[in-house]
Design a protein around this nucleic acid. Sequence first.
DNA 1: CGTTCCATTGAATGAGTTCAATAGTTGTGG
DNA 2: CCACAACTATTGAACTCATTCAATGGAACG
Lengths: 251, 251
Amino acid sequence: MMTRRYIPIQTERIEPRHCTLDLRLQVLRQTPFLAALPPESLAQVNPLFVERGYDAGQTIYAAGAPATRLYVVARGTVKVIRPTDSGPSVLLGLRTAGEFCGSLSALGDRDYRDSAVAQTSCCILSVSAGQFQAMLRRYPSVALATLDVLAARLRAAHDLIEQYSSQPVEQRIAATLLQLGEKVGQEREGVRLIQMPLSRQDVAEMAGTTVETASRVMSQLRKDGLIQTGRRWAAIADRDRLAALAIGGRV
Amino acid sequence: MMTRRYIPIQTERIEPRHCTLDLRLQVLRQTPFLAALPPESLAQVNPLFVERGYDAGQTIYAAGAPATRLYVVARGTVKVIRPTDSGPSVLLGLRTAGEFCGSLSALGDRDYRDSAVAQTSCCILSVSAGQFQAMLRRYPSVALATLDVLAARLRAAHDLIEQYSSQPVEQRIAATLLQLGEKVGQEREGVRLIQMPLSRQDVAEMAGTTVETASRVMSQLRKDGLIQTGRRWAAIADRDRLAALAIGGRV
DNA sequence: CGTTCCATTGAATGAGTTCAATAGTTGTGG
DNA sequence: CCACAACTATTGAACTCATTCAATGGAACG
């Protein structure tokens, strides 16, 4: 009664823990910074990547540990979180198929500044930081593509900073849900279902608030017919009104 | 009486509005992404840069305008600000000699997402986005160096996000002042003077709060002997206690 | 079938904003 | 050189949004 089960089914597709060889090349090809490579170069770098499966909840790398590898998501969804000294973590972003996380700059920090946790069970390819550096040097197009990805992430980070410092919680949560809808949403029965397990805790960490507040706001949004929610899932029912709320405040 | 004028003098050095030729090459050489270039390449790219002076308060580029150029600060200090739909702006960062701002990715947005405003009078070199892209392609070391800068900025942005979502205003302001001290601070009469005009408004925009709160917090910090302040300036008097406050909360 | 996790809701509290008023500082023009 | 206008900073008081503390109930999992 409180949680409408219009969408009882959820992300029922269990991700395979291990990747097939076909998948490997396919993923590497769709990875932004490798997409520009000619096939023969791709075949050359392919062996440098190591594959490994993770169960949902498992940590891929932890903040504070030596930053030795760069990870590429082949299947599944990964949370990149920043632990805070006191209290709950901050969710910096989600990585899905083809996206990377982990060590980037050899000159930068020696340690990871954030942790990556499997949100679904997933399959991850990884390459050592040294080999990645070598790739950057050897294939200039890889460096340029990586530059674009970083620029885009920087823009996204600045968007977040703007949100945090100028918008109330309700708007931040609305914006968060819209972004999730863009990234991992799928149309289902007239609503846009966010295709990943998503707890109130997750939303709270993305919007920089507490579980209770996230729950309250989302309950209200549900009552207003903007979204649908359930245990560890959410769907966008009225994209336009939600977007209006996200930018303009009160609808 | 209320504002101690222990440091009545301030950033009294008026920046020259126009750069000398010597300064040009010197600045380009200390610019991170050009530092790696051999002298002859530097001489080649030098003519691509246009120089121009700006008075304090002048806008170098404005958010929303077509992102056509990349700017390198030669002298002075530049504020990179993100205007918000409603209310005050957010100060994303400061750029001093050798640092760049403006258009980065040709693939990315066509428009600037933020504005750059001269904080002091300053001298700026700029290059067209197209020519910068050509430099990235022609000199791989430039691309790699730019990658490092972007990675560092991304880390800084994530630090900010963490602060915003997990720390109270007092700590954010303390951290802001410490960062400023690192970046543009100079030892003067036993304190670290922040060598740039810095209003409460500026601090507020950096810490994501209001002028009033910034004023209140800084007044308290002054009473506690952690900082010294005046009209449009601040100095760090007790770095250790300020740092303790920034991370640990109440001292 | 009970234990654990997740979500919801209430009430009290508090940090920070908002509104408003005052005052010191700087710069300008008569 | 002085008076006035504009800017910057400070401080008070009311208010509000969000957190915190706390308690309950449903859903999933073994």
